[in-house]
Design a protein around this nucleic acid. Structure first.
Lengths: 239, 239
DNA sequence: CGTGAGATTGAGAATTCTCAAAGGTCGTGG
DNA sequence: CCACGACCTTTGAGAATTCTCAATCTCACG
């Protein structure tokens, strides 16, 4: 249930057995959502946060001109809208990409953790900080790299994040994303994503068929994407 | 000293007199920094966080190809690297743009706040969440808007943020930014910033001379930028 | 098989970049 | 008070990247 979250946390700091139990008890219920469905609508007041147990979800911002930007992709173990605990209203929607299994954690429980479990609260805070670090990295990638490198960077990042929670085997992982959705992450047209992807394939940097990505030569792809793992904070230390 | 931070906080939730005092005592010392100097270098281990009292600072990410991206601009009252409290090492540098006055808050003090002052801790957490919301907005702006609208959006955002802490008068504020630096925020060339800015001026949307920006017609500029204040979370509620 | 979503291709247009040079502004030293 | 230098801003011209708007192709699935 919360096994993937625990892996994510333990990649950054120790989590005691007690804390683990508090987290297990925090999940009030589990929901199933079909693909392409809206889990949280932008601007609505939230009384609970959602933990992604299985599936792929996106945070989507819609501008007034109707254009959509995916600001983050979430994989199993991610606390998708933990930030709604304090923001109360989100500035974006949460949308499923695939079928999803989602754990619901009431905000009162989170408030209680901040009162009684300072260390655990710091770890949750940390999770939101890592989300922010990912978004910062994306800002730099979008601002400074050409399309091909952006796509390569996204694939590198997803690979590493999936690896952390054990969802990648070898240098391969499931990525049930449409080229259109890929474009919404990178701020590119689906047409341009398509052509950039073809170049990556032609250079032997990426294989991507029927929803499965394979990275034949990791160091080369990472170099092409200017990818480094630092921003993911994969280091166990007392927090 | 921490007056601007208090204004920022109180724009989102009540802060008790006790909490106010805790914050005042949190600042161990104050530092002065010249313009264009590095306050925190990317990747270094941090033992304290910095509160901007006066001046303008930028968070700068440098990619391996040497290109720089400013991921956020900070004005007086911003807790510039509060996130280093839990991340320990930042994925970006903190650089002053102008001469700055900065308060230093040791991480032990922050840890103590998480133990003894859960509500205040939530407010600090909230500050990092608002930073993240700003970065999300930038992701959408960079991905979906053309250069002119990006620049307009940045000016709208800065105006509102400065207004909150009382640093804007009328529809005018100090912005001692170079067009080059502006480009590093938006992911644009200084040449392109220049030409886009000329268009904004020609349309009567912006005036910008010797470091002072004036917005003659706020609603029109906001419309042009697709700017809405929602993401800044300017709403007082219990957190 | 027929259908529909997603992938691919083509061609022309718009945006943004690069490189280089020219113009302004402002503080400093003579 | 003027001249100089440093740092910005502005301009020009050509190139590269990315977008738009179809049209076509592929393939899983009913």
């Amino acid at each position: 249930m919360i096994e993937l979250l625990l892996r994510k946390l333990r990649a950054r700091d120790a989590v005691s057995a007690e804390e683990e139990q508090v987290l297990r008890d925090a999940v009030a219920r589990v929901e199933d959502h079909g693909p392409d469905s809206e889990v949280v609508r932008e601007g609505m007041r939230q009384g609970s946060s959602r933990l992604l147990i299985e599936g792929l979800v996106a945070r989507v911002k819609t501008l007034e001109n109707g254009r959509r930007q995916i600001t983050e992709l979430h994989v199993g173990g991610d606390f998708v809208d933990l930030h709604s605990f304090l923001l109360k209203r989100l500035d974006h929607s949460i949308v499923t990409v695939t079928r999803c299994r989602i754990g619901v954690v009431p905000h009162e429980v989170l408030a209680d953790i901040t009162r009684r479990r300072p260390h655990l609260a710091r770890l949750l805070w940390l999770m939101t900080l890592i989300d922010a670090a990912i978004q910062r990295q994306w800002l730099a990638v979008m601002g400074q790299l050409p399309a091909g490198a952006q796509i390569a960077h996204l694939l590198c990042e997803l690979y590493v994040r999936l690896e952390v929670v054990g969802l990648a085997n070898g240098h391969s992982f499931e990525l049930p994303l449409t080229q259109e959705e890929m474009g919404e992450v990178c701020g590119l047209t689906s047409v341009h994503v398509n052509r950039s992807l073809q170049q990556l394939r032609a250079q032997g940097l990426v294989e991507w068929q029927r929803g499965r990505v394979t990275i034949p030569d990791w160091p080369r792809l990472a170099r092409h994407a200017h990818f480094e793992t630092d921003y993911l904070n994969l280091r166990v230390e007392p927090r």
